[in-house]
């Protein structure tokens, strides 16, 4: 009995997600059709990739407010490089974009770790810089469906593997598995959580806490970049503001994730479940109502709910 209770407390988010799907299915039977579910899943994936990235920086006890702008920048970089320069190799553009995003992560790390600005302020500053660069690239406009774009451009967001599995799902599975392995099964991952738990204790046992934070910022930025590439591909467009609306959803999935599995700790499986739940609720609401304001309510409500849960769990945990 105790075991079941414990199991439920740890996995409630998963049960809740399934229950949500079932409820929407009852209200609107079309909801549970395979095509719709796959659609929901692929919309969960882009926010999911971003969330998995953010999980890494949250694990070190820091945060990255520039994540949304990083997504925008990546989409603009891809669009402009492939559409308006002589670079025509999709792979090269993709790699270059991720490298540039990695540099953005390093820049955040430089501001926080080297200069010593609190991550909250430093990354807020970075977010505007990055947004500015994205605007400069696109003349502050949305870039739509340029003829120079190779076919591959839309593949990342709209394509299917073997004709059935949406590409975003494939990418999320690969990214999720890699980062899960990295955070849970490697020395580097253990260190990431160690510095998030107590940087002073790291000093005493010889772990370089600053190096872990640098890694966290870079991984986050690269994955946000990947999410940006996917989003641009899915919309067949790029814009310097496209990532902004994804930041709060990604933040919500990360915090929902911290209520799952390793309670009170940001973790990859939790973030993945959180991303699916978020997409379910979002899409479900779109199906049953056309009131747009409801979306804001639900977005804000879910983020606050997740924050309250995490804080309550932590306070309870520290009283033990």
């Amino acid at each position: 009995m105790e075991k079941w209770k414990d199991m439920f407390a740890k996995r409630w988010l998963l049960f809740f997600t399934i229950a949500t799907a079932v409820i929407f299915g009852i209200i609107s039977p079309a909801f549970l059709q395979v095509a719709n579910l796959l659609n929901i899943l692929s919309s969960a994936c882009i926010v999911g990739v971003m969330g998995v990235g953010l999980t890494c920086i949250f694990a070190t006890g820091e945060l990255d407010f520039s994540a949304g702008s990083q997504v925008s920048l990546a989409s603009c970089l891809m669009a402009v490089m492939l559409g308006r320069t002589s670079l025509h190799s999709y792979a090269a553009a993709l790699i270059l974009t991720l490298v540039i995003l990695g540099l953005v992560g390093l820049y955040n790390a430089f501001l926080h770790v080297k200069i010593g600005i609190p991550a909250f302020i430093a990354t807020l500053g970075t977010s505007y810089l990055v947004k500015g660069i994205a605007k400069a690239l696109t003349n502050s406009k949305t870039v739509n469906n340029l003829p120079q774009w190779p076919k591959a451009f839309t593949f990342m967001g709209q394509g299917y593997l073997f004709g059935i599995i949406p590409m975003p799902v494939v990418i999320l599975v690969i990214v999720g598995a890699l980062i899960l392995f990295y955070t849970e099964y490697t020395r580097a991952g253990k260190y990431l959580y160690a510095v998030g738990s107590n940087p002073t204790a790291c000093d005493y046992i010889g772990i370089d806490g600053k190096a872990q934070k640098v890694k966290g910022f870079v991984i986050t930025a690269v994955l946000c970049g990947l999410a940006g590439v996917m989003q641009g591909s899915q919309m067949n467009a790029a814009s310097p503001t496209l990532g902004e609306n994804m930041f709060v959803p990604a933040l919500t999935t990360v915090f929902l994730g911290a209520t799952y599995g390793k309670i009170g700790v940001f973790n990859v499986p939790g973030t993945l479940v959180g991303a699916v739940l978020y997409a379910l609720i979002n899409q479900g609401l779109l199906m049953i109502t056309s009131e747009l304001w409801l979306k804001n309510y639900v977005q804000g409500g879910m983020l606050l709910f997740a924050l309250v849960m995490v804080v309550v769990i932590r306070v309870k945990g520290s009283k033990k």
Partner: peptide, 8 residues
């Protein structure tokens, strides 16, 4: 408190 990782 400086020697332990509380939640771990």
């Amino acid at each position: 408190a400086n020697g332990m990782f509380k939640a771990l």
